[in-house]
């Protein structure tokens, strides 16, 4: 108990003595960790959107009405035999309709005017490699036909098949955008994290310099290196954990004041929830601990010798 008391007191004194520098370190840690969390949330948001648009389905094979069960099994077997196909699932008209209603639940203008009958059943195909899409129209004997209104459509002669739609390029484009955005933010976050490390290391070093007499005496009377270092390590940890805490709070604020406002405006867009922010929090805290440990190692390197 006495030991904790000692560490706590030493840490508190250190933070007080270094007030402004400690504050600078803390706010840098805060901004860095906030951006780090933001990058993760942006990625999460895009994942949600992509999933909602495509259900991660890369290729849809739309079927002609009426759908015959033996045609469906036959087609599924045919598709699954292709090396390009990872798996195939069948979506009935009813399921497709339900999904349509769920997607546009806030836009009755769509749901009221489109009858379920107009929505086709489909086979949803996941590809082993998006580059292999061409195998599917070949297997189903489809050919490109110019449409009167412009654009092209794959029209298939395979019985029961209406058309084949390739979403894989859309999917990969969306994924690429997500990746670029979150890598961009992550890059800024990493630069900021590096400055947070440098600033915290600097406060520790200044603290050690200010207390070099005490440290010298501690060495002389036989205090262990850990005894000397732990208060400084805790100081760095407190600074970066406070930054992490502020970052999490701020992410919640952003979520409540910006994202939640959008909920009324953009209706068929899925938006991140509190649970998504909460899921990011442990990662931010882990990052802040890493920052503190690295800062401690760098900041005290020169003082490690006995």
């Amino acid at each position: 108990m006495r030991r904790f008391d000692y560490y706590f007191r030493e840490t508190a004194t250190g933070l007080r003595r270094n007030g402004i520098v400690a504050f600078a370190a803390m706010s840098t840690a805060f901004i860095a960790l906030f951006l780090f969390g933001l990058a993760l949330l942006v990625a999460r948001e895009f994942d949600l959107v992509i999933y909602n648009i495509t259900r991660n389905v890369q290729v849809a094979v739309y079927l002609t009405d009426p759908v015959r069960p033996d045609t469906v099994t036959g087609l599924m077997q045919k598709l699954e035999a292709l090396p390009a196909v990872a798996d195939v699932t069948y979506e009935t008209k009813q399921q497709a309709c339900d999904r349509f209603h769920a997607l546009f639940v806030n836009q009755p203008i769509f749901t009221e005017n489109v009858s379920c009958d107009a929505i086709p059943a489909s086979l949803r195909v996941r590809l082993t490699d998006t580059g292999l899409f061409d195998q599917i129209p070949v297997a189903l004997s489809c050919s490109n036909q110019e449409q009167p209104g412009g654009g092209a459509k794959l029209v298939c002669t395979e019985p029961g098949v209406e058309t084949v739609a390739d979403y894989s390029s859309l999917l990969s484009r969306l994924t690429a955008i997500t990746r670029a955005l979150s890598i961009g933010i992550l890059f800024v976050a990493v630069v900021m994290l590096a400055s947070a490390i440098a600033l915290i290391a600097n406060t520790l070093r200044m603290g050690m310099f200010a207390r070099r007499r005490e440290i010298g005496i501690m060495r002389l009377v036989g205090a262990t290196n850990w005894r000397i270092r732990v208060p400084f390590l805790i100081e760095g940890l407190v600074e970066s954990l406070l930054g992490a805490f502020a970052a999490v709070v701020f992410l919640f604020i952003v979520k409540v004041f910006f994202i939640d406002r959008l909920r009324g405006e953009i209706q068929f867009f899925p938006l991140i929830r509190n649970s998504d922010v909460l899921a990011v929090a442990p990662l931010i805290i882990i990052a802040s601990v890493v920052v503190a440990v690295v800062a401690g190692t760098i900041g005290m390197r020169r003082f490690l010798d006995v």
């Binding site: 007499r213 005490e214 010298g216 005496i217 002389l220 009377v221 036989g222 262990t224 006995v306």
Partner: peptide
């Protein structure tokens, strides 16, 4: 450090806080 716990040291400049 454990070695130094068996050694007392006194200096010209006292080294007091």
């Amino acid at each position: 450090p454990h070695l130094r716990r068996n050694i007392g040291t006194v200096f010209q400049d006292y080294k007091l806080l």
